[in-house]
């Protein structure tokens, strides 16, 4: 039934794919401002940009770069570093927010339940560059969280599928990590952490298509030195890494592979998901 209402949106959203040869532009609404949305596919596959306005469903979300109070000095970049990706979870709603500065997190010890309603409700909140000891050049402090945490539809582990963001290849399989490298330039690396290992449907160097099931979101935090399983809250930690280059005034060229903020791309992908983009591929 819903499909009938969404047909006009689907027809528009269907044009917006990264790495499938149909890369085009899309737009997204963002409460941060229209400039925080991005549109044209940066994939070097075909990139015929649309100039028409389109309507996408909005949803409550805080602006990119606005972190939980007291959770870190944040960052300034509003770019969409991965236009056209699929939202990395198959089911909606999903909730992007902090795992530390929310109930069940170490910064809220008096509220021990990670299943608190506050965690499973809008608005979304950015947590790239949230306080961490790890270096992250894009953070104002030079240190911080390297991705965006996303809780699945409900507070249940091993039930909700993570899906591929674009056509690519599985290039890492760790104890709690799956990485997809996009086929299309700039060959972004998307890293998924905390999936249930036994549920993984992919193996190293498998090819994947946009929206393909990868594994179930869980609370897997790997194992310690004694071989004991460690746990975190139930969430997907989603990272995007992109190769970058900078030319200095003397002609010297520097390059680095850095984590970039996923939030703007996720807001855009979620809006398209709500409009019917990215059907799940088994």
């Amino acid at each position: 039934m819903k499909r009938l209402v969404l047909i006009p949106l689907l027809l528009l959203a269907a044009c917006d794919q990264t790495g499938t040869g149909g890369g085009t532009s899309s737009s997204s609404a963002s409460s941060s401002s229209s400039e925080s949305s991005a549109a044209s596919s940066s994939s070097a596959s075909s990139s015929s940009e649309s100039s028409s306005s389109i309507a996408l469903p909005d949803f409550p979300h805080d602006p990119a770069t606005q972190l939980a109070a007291g959770s870190g000095s944040g960052y300034a970049d509003l770019s969409n570093w991965a236009p056209g990706i699929c939202f990395p979870l198959a089911d909606t709603p999903a909730y992007a927010n902090s795992q530390v500065y929310r109930p069940g997190g170490s910064a809220r010890p008096s509220e021990p339940s990670q299943c608190a309603a506050e965690n499973y409700s809008y608005p979304w909140q950015d947590n790239f560059c949230e306080s961490r000891s790890w270096s992250n050049p894009l953070c104002n402090s030079g240190q911080g969280h390297q991705g965006q945490d996303i809780r699945p539809k409900t507070c249940k582990s091993n039930l909700y599928w993570a899906v591929a963001p674009e056509d690519g290849v599985v290039t890492q399989m760790g104890s709690m990590t799956v990485a997809i490298t996009g086929n299309a330039p700039p060959h972004r690396v998307y890293r998924y952490l905390h999936m249930q290992r036994s549920s993984l449907r992919v193996a190293l160097h498998d090819t994947v298509v946009r929206g393909q099931k990868l594994g179930l979101v869980s609370n897997n935090l790997g194992v310690n030195s004694q071989g004991q399983q460690q746990y975190t809250t139930i969430h997907l930690h989603f990272e995007i890494r992109v190769g970058q280059t900078e030319t200095l005034s003397d002609g010297t060229v520097l390059s680095a592979d850095d984590f970039v903020p996923p939030y703007t791309a996720l807001v855009d992908s979620y809006q398209r998901k709500l409009a019917g983009d990215c059907p799940t591929v088994e």
């Binding site: 737009s27 229209s34 949305s37 549109a39 044209s40 940066s42 306005s53």
Partner: peptide, 14 residues
């Protein structure tokens, strides 16, 4: 929500 692509800041397209 209607958004025009014309409003997008080109600097944000990576």
């Amino acid at each position: 929500t209607a958004v025009s692509t014309a409003k997008i800041n080109p600097a944000l397209l990576r």
